[in-house]
Design a binder for these strands. Sequence first.
RNA 1: GGGGGAGUAGCUCAGCUGGUUAGAGCGCCGGCCUGUCACGCCGGAGGUCGCGGGUUCAAGUCCCGUCUCUCUCGCCA
Length: 637
Amino acid sequence: MHRYRTHTCGDLRETQAGEEVRLSGWCHRIRDHGGVLFIDLRDHYGITQCVIDPDSGAFAAAEKLRSEWVVRFDGHVRRRPEGTENPEMPTGFVEVYVTAILILGPAAELPLPVFGEHQYPEDMRLKYRFLDLRREKLHNNIMLRGAIIDSLRARMKAGGFFEFQTPILTASSPEGARDFLVPSRLHPGKFYALPQAPQQFKQLTMVAGFDRYFQIAPCFRDEDARADRSPGEFYQLDIEMSFVTQEDVFEAVEPVLRGIFEEFGEGKPVTQQFPMISYSAAIRAYGSDKPDLRNPLLIHDVTQAFRDSGFGVFAKRLAADPEARVWAIPAPGGGQRTFCDRMDSWAKSEGQPGLAYIFWREGEETGAGPVAKNVGPERTEHIRRGLNGVPGEWVQVPAPELTASTGEKFPLEVANPYRQLRPEGLKAGDAVFFVLGKPDDIYKFAGLARQRLGTELNLATKDVFEFCWIVDFPMYEWNEDEKKIDFSHNPFSMPNFDHDAFIALDDADQATTLSIKAFQYDIVCNGIELSSGAIRNHRPDIMKKAFALAGYDEAVLLEKFGGMYRAFQYGAPPHGGIAPGVDRIVMLLAGEENLREVVLFPMNQRAEDLLMGAPSEVTPKQLRDLHIRLNLPEKKG
RNA sequence: GGGGGAGUAGCUCAGCUGGUUAGAGCGCCGGCCUGUCACGCCGGAGGUCGCGGGUUCAAGUCCCGUCUCUCUCGCCA
């Protein structure tokens, strides 16, 4: 007989009744009835009920067992007595009658129990991660993660991609997030950096002629955490392809993601054709470049209805500032004063001056609330009827005409789900909220309000994965602090502009420069940015011009990206790629709200590993070897 | 770096406008219990109320400072 087990705790069924078996595992739950003792024995594969009674010879030993002790049981399988079966468990029709017990690993009193679904404090869970990981939900999440990564690999390989490994110790990159640095012992005063992404390596792999690259790539960024952003390190399905257009990348990646979500999405519908939405249309219609399309609400432009109106606050601002707009977010079902006031105080808590609104109720068809009174019944009626998802004279709907990457147009009801909700405009019981300001200043808040209304009014579709492409990101943006033009995303993207005309551009022509779009795209699912990618700029002359337009001369380009700039001098193929975030994909598929629920050993929000105690101090000798002298900040107080 | 929330038994939490000996559930220890699967019943141990200072006759409760955790904004080519 094997030293530890003949079967796992998930194996045994009625067909094995009568067999002599040996099981090893953790004491999951112990029920002591005095004369008979039930121990649920748990391992990775399942749980098996084990029974000990005074006749078994193991009774005295069994009474000493406690939760989470690791034990080996010898015994025989038997069918459970009639009426005591547990159909909830795969092994619920059998039990093991235990005749011998060997304690393999006793456990101290637990800081957090494994059994049950109680919520425990985050720092406790992280410090005792090995216990937390024994719990069913987290254990399953980690196994799901592995299965998803297997499937991603298989799908990529089936798509003709090859997996590569790129360096972990590399050079600090000047753009983007803060780097993690590793001091060099052999080169005093110099540092390696952990890669924020294998961006340059994958492009160089294309220059080297490998054609279709992928990697489940670790990425390191020294930035503060978010619920959907791990501190320090995370994984991307990193992809790069040669001789491709944007559409080729879409056609390669879309089926992989759709397939993964269909395979692991437990039957929840997945967008069959990912619509393409331009960055500017997304900002105007959803107030975000990562719109949650489960929410049917659209932001309407009702500037016209307030211009020269009796609502002084808005009318004056519109008269004074030609760029100012009034954006309206319809709130079907939100037409109660208490609800509107609650939204107003929420807006104030978000640092806004407030949230103007009109609402409609039976007997007050001309609209209730101070805004309606000041604007007057005629304009209020234009707003009410105009908020039906169809553009009109007084109300503009910036709903994009959605296109699939195949070029196919989506029908209006897909592109504009809001139209289905209120085809005749708002009615009694509904409300509308108004945001005033320059689009650049108000879009984020308008987007937040749209999300909040969707949630509060329970309008969002549930149990679906709504995907879209966000395309046509601006190549440059205005940096208000430094009063200069900056790269909007990354300097590697190819401008979506005639190449000769681009090179001929006047460096001082800021208006044209700021209007240039890039072949830069994101995939968004349920309001979460899953990946970002681009067709790269593989031409040194265009790259030099791209830097010049952002105010950098060739010396800067050489200093910052010398390796790649040099590589592009020797025959670079047109190429592009994308990098879906593996952790976020798993998070969505596991139905979790926080990345820590899908990472085996995560750090806390302050980038500390509470289990291993990282980061930690090191010995003076280690520092001497690295030629480092500490210069610590003064202790506060 | 800014803002919100939290810190009371091993864990989750209650503890009102300051007032006698700080409570409950789970866990732990002991006893009883032969069919449970969140087993049940009886008893017990376990608390510098995060830390420091202040106000007060009296502070878990009010004030100030500080530390820790958490969410969030900044940040994230």
